[in-house]
Simulated scan of single mutants.
Amino acid sequence: MKKIKYNKALEELEQIVAEIENEEISVDDLAEKVERASKLIQACKDTLSKTEADVDKILSGLNEDE
């Protein structure tokens, strides 16, 4: 999966959930949509983890300067 921006992934996830909730997805397409949602969730988790690590690193640098 190519790199996708967090907000774009979240938007697509929300769309998939809405389609499932509104029963707009056929049974034939459900597995494909669930697989796509799984990949989007992983991409979001990866982005959040990286952002958290970056913020922690920045904050640690600030604490060292004190």
Score class of each variant (00 low, 15 high):
residue 25 I to E: 02
residue 62 L to H: 12
residue 63 N to P: 00
residue 66 E to K: 08
residue 49 S to Y: 09
residue 6 Y to P: 03
residue 33 K to T: 06
residue 13 L to K: 08
residue 28 D to P: 03
residue 65 D to E: 10
residue 33 K to W: 11
residue 50 K to C: 09
residue 48 L to Y: 09
residue 38 S to K: 07
residue 26 S to P: 05
residue 12 E to N: 14
residue 18 A to E: 15
residue 4 I to W: 00
residue 5 K to G: 03
residue 1 M to C: 11
residue 45 K to P: 00
residue 55 V to I: 15
residue 26 S to D: 05
residue 53 A to H: 10
residue 66 E to V: 10
residue 18 A to I: 08
residue 54 D to Y: 02
residue 33 K to L: 12
residue 29 D to V: 11
residue 7 N to D: 12
residue 45 K to R: 13
residue 16 I to L: 11
residue 55 V to F: 13
residue 25 I to F: 00
residue 4 I to G: 01
residue 12 E to P: 03
residue 16 I to Y: 10
residue 24 E to N: 06
residue 7 N to M: 13
residue 65 D to N: 04
residue 5 K to P: 00
residue 8 K to D: 07
residue 11 E to P: 00
residue 1 M to F: 15
residue 50 K to Y: 14
residue 2 K to D: 08
residue 59 L to T: 06
residue 1 M to K: 11
residue 13 L to P: 03
residue 43 A to Q: 05
residue 19 E to P: 08
residue 48 L to Q: 02
residue 50 K to R: 09
residue 17 V to L: 06
residue 36 R to I: 01
residue 50 K to E: 09
residue 19 E to V: 04
residue 28 D to C: 04
residue 6 Y to N: 02
residue 18 A to H: 14
residue 56 D to T: 12
residue 64 E to Q: 14
residue 21 E to M: 13
residue 13 L to G: 07
residue 35 E to H: 15
residue 22 N to M: 06
residue 8 K to H: 01
residue 41 I to K: 12
residue 8 K to F: 02
residue 57 K to E: 04
residue 4 I to T: 09
residue 8 K to M: 01
residue 27 V to G: 07
residue 38 S to F: 07
residue 53 A to I: 07
residue 60 S to R: 08
residue 43 A to Y: 06
residue 53 A to P: 04
residue 42 Q to F: 04
residue 31 A to R: 10
residue 22 N to I: 00
residue 51 T to D: 11
residue 6 Y to M: 06
residue 31 A to Y: 06
residue 56 D to F: 15
residue 7 N to T: 12
residue 28 D to W: 05
